[in-house]
């Protein structure tokens, strides 16, 4: 493809946003890739050859029924495929950030490591976190329609192991904690006016690992695979700093597993620093939806809307 010819026909993009795992596939991911002339099956074959990834039985139902790790690997494959397609069309897209486990595709997108290295990091992170949690059963839930202070009051009342691990926007939060405590909290906030609560199909306590010494296997894996700096500006969703050295990238991979993130602050950082047209580079439209309740003038285009530009 001739980059110069295509760029003028396509929307300007200031930043690329990578969604986390557990997203709902819309079906437009495959349409986008087909219109781009991209064969994701080849990426699936590469993933199957070097990891525990199992190819979905059909593309139509991709993401519908698979376990937590498989869902994460599948989301990564799609995000990388969509990234490959987008990178063919733009000479540079200055900004990049990620939501939660979207970090692995963001690092692939910015040339920090190979596709295979990202798979290795995902598997290592998952297994390390599952081992670190011990025998405790964790659950994650999204609470929509209540302000942070209201949820915090309920958390204090619920007691036990429970944290807000992400602020999507001023009316949407993700909590993580022991299963029974999360269930109790979800009931309490529903009775107190939450518009929507969703217990997520996840059990790994990402963003809530209290003892970071237990993440040593992940640290070792980072030392092995992270060797390059990004070729565009990557902002951490943990602390909204720029990941511009190999050491900072490694630290962020660890922090992103262990500590709470804040999507609202991360996105606002991009808006303040000059971005206002973004591409959601992965399956689903979770970041487009989260953006609906963040103040500012911006657009987030995903596979669905972007497909209209590909004829």
């Amino acid at each position: 493809m001739n980059k110069t010819e295509s760029v003028s026909e396509l929307p300007e993009l200031h930043g690329v946003l990578f969604p986390g795992c557990g997203v709902t596939f819309t079906g437009y991911e495959n349409a986008f890739l087909q219109k781009s002339g991209y064969f994701i099956e080849e990426l699936f074959n590469r993933a199957s050859a070097c990891s525990s990834f199992k190819k979905p039985e059909s593309l139509r139902n991709a993401g519908d029924e698979c376990d937590e790790l498989q869902n994460q690997l599948l989301t990564y494959c799609y995000s990388c495929a969509i990234s490959d397609s987008i990178r063919q069309r733009y000479t540079t897209i200055p900004w990049c950030t990620f939501y939660s486990m979207g970090i692995y595709a963001a690092l692939y997108h910015t040339g920090v490591y190979t596709f295979e290295s990202g798979l290795k990091l995902i598997e290592t992170a998952y297994r390390t976190v599952m081992k670190a949690k011990g025998s405790v059963s964790y659950a994650l839930a999204t609470i929509i329609g209540l302000e942070r202070t209201v949820i915090e009051k309920h958390i204090v009342y619920a007691g036990g192991l429970l944290d807000i691990i992400n602020e999507n926007n001023s009316l949407s939060f993700v909590v993580c904690g022991e299963c029974t405590t999360v269930t109790k909290l979800v009931q309490a906030v529903t009775d107190d006016g939450a518009m929507k609560t969703v217990v997520l199909p996840l059990s790994a306590p990402y963003h809530a690992v209290k003892d970071q010494t237990k993440l040593e296997p992940l640290r070792l894996c980072c030392d092995e695979v992270i060797v390059h700096v990004p070729d565009s500006t990557v902002v951490s969703c943990v602390n909204q700093t720029i990941m511009d050295t190999v050491e900072r990238i490694k630290n962020t991979v660890i922090e992103n597993v262990a500590l709470p993130i804040n999507w609202r602050k991360t996105f606002e950082y991009l808006l303040v620093n000059g971005g206002h047209t973004f591409f959601e580079c992965g399956p689903g439209e979770s970041l487009y939806k989260a953006g609906k309740f963040i103040d500012g003038k911006f657009t987030i285009t995903g596979c669905k809307k972007y497909s209209a530009f590909l004829t």
């Binding site: 929509i144 329609g145 006016g193 518009m195 939806k289």
Partner: peptide, 29 residues
């Protein structure tokens, strides 16, 4: 349910309303 929140935010802005989403959520129960 996100649509309800979006519509309520639109109405809140247009009519400069003093109402929390929590109050609306409780009413909708």
């Amino acid at each position: 349910s996100l649509l309800y929140i979006e519509m309520l935010q639109l109405i809140k802005k247009k009519y400069t309303l003093n109402v929390s989403m929590q109050a609306v959520g409780k009413y909708m129960l």
